[in-house]
Amino acid sequence: MMRLPKFVYHAPTSVDEAGRILAGEGTAARVVAGGTDLYPNMKRGHQLPPVLVSLRRIPKITGISGTPETGLRIGACTSLTQLGSHPAVKSGYAALASAVLSISTPILRNMGTIGGNLCLDTRCNYYNQNYEWRRAIHFCMKCDGSICWVAPSSKTCLAINSSDTAPLLAALGGRARLISTRGERELAIKDLYNLDGIDYLNKRPDEILTEILLPPAGGWIASYRKLRRRGSFDFPVLGVAAVLWKEPDGRIRDAKIYLNAVASAPLEAKEAETCLVGRKLDTETIREAARLAAEMAKPVDNADFGIAWRKRMARVFTERALNDLKE
């Protein structure tokens, strides 16, 4: 049976207390919420934090407040099940609800949290393997080694961001609140990520992601399309989030398109966005925007399916996401 390594476990009951523990422990400590990402990684020896700081007993960072009219505040420890089935989310942010309900499995959504999904470790099938397997390939730069086996000439790790919520929250203009003993700050979700499979998150080890802020619903429409092999369990091998703000006459005032699972961070398809602005969402426009978006996608051979097909699907799925937003 795969088992967890030993660790010291803290269960603070307030963000302040958690922050103090983290500040005191330095880089030795890891924050854990649902554990569905961290614990498998620990069992496989990717991460061996001597200290865990659990956020499960901090009541203040669980739950959803606000209304679609004013925007929502989502506690980072809100379970994905709770988030995906919350009436305000379903009514005002249906695309988010559907993205959330596409994550993994119903059981894992009972356990995993929105904060955990946003902070999800980057994935690569040279990395998400047991210690013994990784030893057989002499390890990789993300863990215990020095080379990227996906592209041995690469200086950075190419593990991919596999969050289903990140691209949509980035496109929606969601914000993350981060708290540490040094103070608190708000960061646009789109700025939460780095294009680096190892240093993928703009969150310091002593910071706690406490809540996610959603802008008011209305005035925009959104869609999320996910590509994966099976109807559950699987991480996306491609995620396309599209959000459009339209004028009364149907012309697009603003557009945000993010692709995920094709790089170490959600990628904003800026050229596609520019191409959409000022135009109506007709077949021609959609096709052009999708082509531009797909140019950003440079999948590498570290996930399910072949890379040529995944790249081609970036176009098809962007088209489909935009088609979802036709009147």
Partner: peptide, 18 residues
């Protein structure tokens, strides 16, 4: 890559779900 099994896990070896 040293002849390793590409996907020796329940997640990556694809068994159909419900």
């Amino acid at each position: 890559r040293n002849g390793v099994h590409k996907i020796p896990s329940m997640l990556d070896y694809k068994s159909p779900t419900t």
